Simulated assay, not measured.
Amino acid sequence: MPRKNPRAGGRSVALLAAATSLALTLSGCSMSTVSPADVRGEPVEGAVQLEGPDCDELKCIALTFDSAPSEHTPELLEILREEEVPVTFFLLGRNHIDTYPELVQQMVDEGHELANHTWTHPRLTEIEPDEVREELERTQEAVAELTGITMTLMRPPQGRTNDEVGEISRELGLAQVLWSVTAKDYQTTDSELIRSRVLDGADEDGIILLHDLYDGTVPAVPGIIEELKAQHYTFVTVSQLFAPGVAEPGRVYR
């Protein structure tokens, strides 16, 4: 599947576009997952309490964007600013963070959450432990250098994880976040189809997976936000969805 950004590496493109539709099945094969509502029931003593909506009282949902930033991110940020919607960006390193560093800082300045999506987007279950650690550490370090933020969440590419990836994530202080609905926006440029797929799968405490680098995705976002607001959803970041609980490093959440 072709990618709009001409500066992106071919390996990243191929891996990102491959078989994501299988990820929810594959990712859960050896590790149990925890729901946002279960996290909220486990407040952590001494943890910093996030400001934001009470998702025990409200109908909350989290929009997330993988493999950001991209050439489409400025348009997306403008939409989110106008709609006053916070999201979680799972940042990719090569050809993304290093190409658009100013957009990473803008995300922070505008109230969005940053999370780790590795440096080159490999299947973490198919590389050596030292390579897994390097993929995550390099992205952690790049974001910390740019923004001063230490990210606490990661999303394994294609949702592929196992006990070894979980242990390395735990060592690095990263909880693993999957999703409850995907638009499969790598398959199509049809913005209406992307919108309908999200709306068909949306539910309370849901985590929506999108990618702003594909041509059809950002044009679908206003319609997604409008309809979900009409259904009385409140948009939050992933960490806000968990509050007052805090995701535990190494565990898998969906």
Rank of each mutant, 00 (worst) to 15 (best):
E45T: 11
G28E: 14
A62N: 07
P101W: 07
G41D: 14
G111V: 10
E51G: 14
R94A: 15
I97E: 05
C55K: 04
L103D: 09
V85C: 11
A62F: 00
E113F: 08
H72M: 07
I97N: 09
E113S: 07
L58H: 11
V48L: 13
S70V: 05
L50V: 06
V85I: 13
R81E: 15
A68C: 12
L80F: 05
E113A: 09
Q105R: 13
E84H: 12
E71M: 12
Q49C: 06
E42N: 13
V34Q: 06
C55V: 00
L58P: 00
C55W: 01
R40F: 07
L58M: 12
L103R: 02
E110Y: 00
G111C: 07
G46A: 12
E71A: 13
F90M: 07
D109C: 05
S21N: 12
I61G: 04
V44Y: 03
S21E: 14
G41S: 15
T33P: 03
C60K: 01
G28C: 03
R81K: 15
A37C: 06
A37H: 05
E71I: 11
E45C: 01
V104S: 07
P36H: 06
V104I: 05
L80P: 08
M31N: 12
D98L: 08
T99E: 13
F89H: 09
